[in-house]
Each structure stands twice: as structure tokens, then as C-alpha cells.
Design a protein around this nucleic acid. Structure first.
Length: 254
DNA sequence: TCTTTATGGTGAG
DNA sequence: TCACCCTAAAGAT
């Protein structure tokens, strides 16, 4: 479930629960055994999110986590259930346990490496990024807007759901070259993403259709072939930027 | 007990 | 553009 809203939510939860105290760190799966041993018993000072990256600071050692497509964190009150065989990392303190499975990245880095990671990321709508930075990055891209929104150097934290929903909400066809967007369209995208990612982080899920049933809370994502919730036209789906995008031919004219 | 699917990203060709 | 990596849960058999 990992777009930027999920990552920021995890950072906040883990910071609140674990930061400022020594934590027990293990790797039930074993693939992070060496790193876990180095962190075990140390004080976790801070948890910070940027885009889809998580940084857990233990002095000069930093635990870097990226969930990728299938990575998940589960948070339990103790006594927590036993971890699954695939649990890469277990962190325990303060009567709580967090289990991490399936991450794309789970490793120790130094501050210099963190700086390199941060330098490769564009503005994060949930971490002080600005519309001006976003507009400047978009203006340099001739690629379709739908592809640019997935580029983490253009905007950090947006994934396949937010790109489809934001383009729909702003009435922009995904194939429109990024640098041809008007100032008003760029402003709409930024403001829409800021608002919805913030709301997503609070709710723990992405909702763009207000007051809708649980399975009707998105306008276009994964709804190819179905009727547009706004105008009834048949939604179209195709591949853009290596992932499936869905859009309304009438609400998002070419 | 299988196959499928997923809101991500990298590296080879 | 494609193959591939990571894991769990849901659906099919």
C-alpha cells in the first residue's frame, strides 16, 4: 500500500511509538541479520519520510527502508503475534512491535548516502516541497504528464493511484506533454496532490470520491472499461510510463 | 495447492 | 521495452 501518504503515516507512527528510546531490532527472516545486530539496543532518535523513502536515525547509522511494490509494515501492541517467515525486520519498544516484510530496500547507510538519495528526489508535497519546484521540474519534461508524475525527481511520493486521480481531478489528459501544461493546470495538480496526499496520510488510504462506499472511493484508478463516475463515458486504460493509466475521454480531453 | 495480483524500482539489451 | 526482484493475500482449481 505504498505511495507517499503511506510512507509519511508510517514515519509518524513509528516516530511517536519508538523514537527517543532504545529499541530491540531483529531479522526473523535472517536477510537483515547483520544490520539488525548493529542496531539492536541502540536509541532510535528520529524517523523521517521523504517521498517513498524512510530514514530511521541511530546516530551516524541510518536505517533506510523503501517498501517497493509489495513491502508492508504491520504495527502491533505487545504481545504481538509471531512474525511470518518473510519478516525482514522486527522492531520492538514501548510495548509495541513493527514487522517489515517484502521491502525493496532495508539496509544501513551513512549520512552521505542519505544526502545522495535526497538529492535525487523532487519536491515532496508532504515534506515542505513547493509548487515552484514542481513547476520547474515539470517544465523541463517533454514526456507525457502522466509519465512525469511517476518520476520521483519531478515530484516525490506520487505513485500510480495519485497520478491517475490527480490528472482526472484536474481534467488533464495523461498524454499531454508535461511542459505544455498551463500555470493553472500545474497549480491544480500540485494543490490536488498536496490536499489528497495529506488526507490519505491521515486516513491511511487514498480517497478522492467523498462520501462514497469503500469500493467506490476512486474516480479512475483500475476502472478501465467502466463508466466515468462524473459523466458516464467509458473510461480508457493504456500503458504509460510502464504502468497502467486510466482516464476519462470526456473529462480529460486530449 | 496452485495462480494471480499489487499503490515500485532497477538494470540489461 | 522487458525481465526481474521482494511477500502476502485472495481467488481459482
Amino acid at each position: 500500500v505504498p505511495e507517499g501518504h503511506t510512507i509519511h503515516r508510517i514515519a509518524r507512527q513509528h516516530h511517536d511509538v519508538f523514537a527517543g528510546r532504545p529499541v530491540r531490532v531483529t531479522s526473523p527472516q535472517g536477510r537483515f541479520a547483520d544490520g539488525a545486530a548493529l542496531l539492536d539496543g541502540r536509541v532510535l532518535e528520529e524517523v523521517e519520510a521523504l517521498g517513498k523513502h524512510l530514514f530511521y536515525r541511530f546516530g551516524h547509522r541510518i536505517l533506510h527502508v523503501h517498501l517497493g511494490l509489495v513491502g508492508t509494515f504491520q504495527l502491533f501492541h505487545e504481545p504481538a503475534p509471531p512474525p511470518s517467515a518473510g519478516t525482514r525486520l522486527a522492531m520492538r519498544a514501548n510495548g509495541a512491535a513493527a514487522y517489515l516484510s517484502g521491502p525493496m530496500v532495508c539496509g544501513l547507510i551513512d549520512p552521505g548516502t542519505e544526502d545522495e538519495i535526497r538529492a535525487d528526489l523532487g519536491p515532496d508535497p508532504l515534506a515542505g516541497g513547493t509548487r515552484e519546484e514542481f513547476a520547474a521540474a515539470l517544465g523541463r519534461k517533454s514526456m507525457p504528464a502522466g509519465a512525469a508524475l511517476l518520476d520521483q525527481k519531478v515530484i516525490a511520493g506520487v505513485g500510480n493511484v495519485y497520478r491517475a486521480e490527480a490528472l482526472f481531478l484536474c481534467g488533464i489528459h495523461p498524454n499531454r506533454p508535461a511542459r505544455t501544461l498551463t500555470d493553472a493546470q500545474v497549480a491544480c495538480l500540485w494543490q490536488t496532490i498536496v490536499a489528497h496526499m495529506g488526507e490519505g496520510a491521515r486516513r491511511g488510504r487514498i480517497v478522492t470520491v467523498e462520501d462514497a462506499a469503500d469500493d467506490e472511493r476512486l474516480y479512475v484508478y483500475r476502472r478501465g472499461g467502466l463508466a466515468c463516475r462524473r459523466c458516464g463515458a467509458e473510461l480508457r486504460a493504456w500503458t504509460l510510463g510502464g504502468r497502467t493509466i486510466t482516464a476519462c475521454p470526456d473529462c480529460q480531453p486530449a
